[in-house]
Amino acid sequence: MIKAVFFDLNETLLNMDLLGKKFNKYFDNEYAMKYWFRKLLHSSVVVGSLNKYTSFSELARVELENLFYENSKEINENIKNDILGTFTDLRVYEDVIASLNVLKENKIKIIIISNSSKEMMNLQLKNSGIISLIDNYYSVDMVKKYKPFNLIYKDVINKEQLLLSEVFMIACHDWDLFGAKEIGLKTAYIKRKKEIFNPYYPKADLEDKDLYSLVKKIIKY
């Protein structure tokens, strides 16, 4: 019986289009944000692989500086804040509220796990209007190891007094689900972006383009 669903936050529940518009304000390239985000994830995996830790916000600022440098553009603190401050203004996708409500109706706990700081998550959940629907939320800051390294999943399982068999992890990132799958969590892939699920990663147990349909599958699982 499924007792809890772990959710990734950015891009899975929160729509990043607003952040994309900020990048478009400074770059003539629709892939600028995606490139920056890939470099950010790469940095987090590198420091994690070497058992080091630097906060996600610090890595994000460094990679933003690098992006401007690579494109021979000037950057200052105002520009950094203008772009990265958008994270707290992100809105949920249209299918999110109904999906969370149906999980609540079925007494399935809703737990958010993110690479962002606890403070950032709090602002994001409040400003997007879903914090009242969330049972708990956890930042990788508490284990000092980013997703997809599975330490955060293990820690949350223990803190929430759950069994691996009682939990589904939902994310729009294949690499995120890889980490969850490695410790035995069931995984569900929500297809938010036009990209191929990496064939070298373990296949998700469930998949859908609509979050509401996906959580209904989990409830029936």
Rank of each mutant, 00 (worst) to 15 (best):
K191L: 09
R61S: 15
A180G: 13
I113Q: 10
L206D: 09
K104A: 13
T12S: 12
D208G: 02
V96I: 13
K181S: 15
F168R: 08
L90Q: 08
K154P: 00
A98Q: 14
F6H: 00
N158I: 06
D17E: 15
P199Q: 03
K216H: 10
L41W: 00
L151I: 14
I79K: 01
S117F: 02
M169W: 01
A60C: 06
I219Y: 03
K145T: 07
V62D: 07
Y138N: 03
F87Q: 03
C172Y: 09
M33W: 13
D28Y: 06
S72P: 02
K73R: 09
A171S: 13
K203F: 05
E105M: 09
I108A: 04
E30T: 09
L133K: 14
Y26H: 14
E182C: 05
S132C: 07
A171R: 01
T86K: 04
Y31E: 14
A204K: 00
I112M: 05
L151V: 11
V96R: 07
F149E: 13
S165W: 06
M142T: 12
S165H: 07
M1A: 11
T12P: 05
L125P: 02
E166G: 07
S213K: 14
Y26V: 04
V156W: 07
Y93G: 06
K34S: 08
L162M: 09
D89A: 07
K107V: 11
A60K: 02
I218W: 01
D82R: 00
E182I: 09
E105R: 07
L123G: 00
Q124G: 04
Y31C: 10
K118C: 08
E70Q: 15
K21D: 11
F56H: 04
L18G: 02
I110Q: 05
N71G: 05
K21T: 10
K118H: 15
